[in-house]
Design a protein around this nucleic acid. Structure first.
Lengths: 247, 247
DNA sequence: CAGTCAGTTTCGTATAATGAAACTAAGTTT
DNA sequence: AAACTTAGTTTCATTATACGAAACTGACTG
């Protein structure tokens, strides 16, 4: 077995116990025992620690546990970061290390997309992604995500702004968007730029609205179709995690 | 040594690490090492666990830690209780067990005080405190707290509503209020009721405003002056804790 | 009153958390 | 540029300590 980082098991378990409360606000000891598949005496002890410090409270009547005031207290001390570009940077860096390619973050601004954050690949041959760059919304994996997950009225206006050569092109494009929504990610190979490929996924905020688009991009001979399919689930997983960071 | 509850040491320590962030939003490993007086390798491992689960994040540049999105996520799952009577009940029950006397919670309503919550002592001889009871604001430990910590204009109106027999009485009363603000608690012996004594302390909400008054009361032969002085710091400690629970 | 179920406590054992110390990597001073 | 700091990371031997099986309690149920 290989442990990525040397952590403390008892603490890992205690934190898992806390996270159970994201599923249900009020839990009995046995509820938690089942959710964590730990033994009840273990859970009992972990809860004793959590309760003593006020991270959970036990209702005197029902014996059920809920999150305690310490969570509230800590949440008031959260660094108040507002913009995704700042808050998501650490995660993007991690992702960049993991995938070894350039990671970008896009938002839509009118009929363009804007790169609001990027971490560059460390490889010699790499896709350089300047922050602040404005790109068209028609082509590229990130663009397709921005269109596919735009809310209804925005989508209609975007589609009308795109100049399709043939009407059959629009048809194909719509089918592509539908597929993307099914898959949860979009890819592009040499679509916008010679020799470049990318995978893009949506990041939703707490209210399930599209907040920003995350993409990994690199030279298409390195970022092959195969590699992209490998990266897609990793991207979606990262996006889910990052979404939780947006208020 | 006697362990009150059997807890898990590693977890206790990890929670202490989290609580460090209430003092300063951004902390280095050594900062935490000093604040907790744990060894750095221990802190390092605890942070690894906390980071993996997203309870803290490490800024890639500065290497400093801040609270992570998991705290935010959990805080959104806090049971949204609004009224102090509900939210403070569990703590009042604990306090009642500890002190063995009746615990009450009061708010001011106009020129009266109202008991909005109570847990009854389990002893045979006890002070019975019906919820909803309305009592005068002049006498009793809780009343004095309500007056002493009322905001300026409310205090003036309250003082004018009290019918002091002699003007020297008002003088004395004001001195008493000043003393109470210095001590942080008020006591009363047979003041309002024959044979009854009480200690009362203010509970302040997050914005440092008087939210509610907490009192312990019982027969004056059991709740002696000595006992009351013993209970006062316990009450103030409990009140501080309870205040953090009020949004 | 037997029977189930949830929570609590005990206890022997093996594991896993610990802290000293060594190591790395920056940053500072000489 | 060598010699020191200073902060973070990793290793490792030791033992404390977290673990889970099982027994216990006590409340609720049929």
């Amino acid at each position: 077995m290989e442990d990525k980082k040397s952590t403390v098991r008892a603490v890992d378990r205690a934190l898992d116990v806390l996270l159970c409360f994201t599923q249900k606000p009020s839990l009995s000891l046995t509820d938690i025992t089942m959710l964590t598949s730990l033994h009840k005496s273990t859970v009992h002890r972990l809860l004793a620690s959590l309760e003593e410090k006020g991270f959970v409270v036990r209702s005197a009547e029902t014996d059920k546990y809920t999150l305690g005031f310490r969570i509230w207290e800590l949440s008031t001390h959260l660094p108040q970061v507002d913009d995704p570009a700042t808050i998501l940077l650490p995660e993007m860096e991690k992702l960049g290390d993991l995938l070894g390619e350039t990671i970008s973050l896009y938002i839509r601004d009118g009929n363009e997309r804007v790169r609001i954050q990027a971490v560059q690949s460390k490889q010699a041959i790499r896709r350089v992604a300047p922050i602040g760059a404005r790109l068209p919304l028609y082509v590229g994996a990130s663009s397709k995500i921005l269109v596919a997950y735009a809310d209804d009225e925005a989508q209609i206006s975007l589609l009308s702004s795109i100049n399709f050569p043939k009407s059959s092109d629009k048809e194909k494009y719509l089918i592509q968007l539908k597929q993307i929504r099914q898959d949860g990610y979009a890819t592009s190979i040499e679509e916008r730029e010679q020799g470049a490929a990318a995978v893009a996924v949506p990041i939703f905020d707490q209210s399930e609205k599209l907040a920003v688009v995350l993409s990994v991009s690199g030279p298409s001979n390195r970022l092959t179709l195969e590699k992209m399919q490998e990266h897609a689930p990793q991207m979606m997983e990262a996006a889910a995690r990052m979404g939780k960071m947006l208020r």
